[in-house]
Design a protein around this nucleic acid. Structure first.
Length: 88
DNA sequence: GTTGAGCGTT
């Protein structure tokens, strides 16, 4: 499941998200979106977990939780248009 | 040494 994490501190990195979601389940991939031009952090990122149940549980546990002094917002990420193994 | 609504560079 793809998880959208926002309201992050500017010093948070992708490894921070991985360390935050790892105890809840297996983190397949974690990435914090930084500014592509300036390279500075944008304050939000995405976390992908193998177990969707653990992901939902992690969302409920980590949403509005205090991280680096700021309450982060965790929710399910939107689905990007993918034409892989999906059937209409 | 800066800032603060949002859904990503593959």
């Amino acid at each position: 499941m793809n998880i959208y994490v926002s309201n992050l501190a500017f010093n948070i990195q992708d490894e921070e998200l991985k360390n935050l979601f790892t105890p809840f389940g297996t983190v397949t991939s974690s990435k914090v979106i930084n500014d592509r031009e300036t390279g500075r952090s944008r304050g939000f990122g995405f976390v992908e977990m193998d177990d969707d149940a653990a992901a939902k549980k992690a969302i409920q546990q980590l949403d509005q939780s205090s991280l680096d002094g700021r309450a982060i917002r965790v929710s399910e990420a939107r689905e990007k248009p993918a034409r892989s193994n999906n059937r209409y």
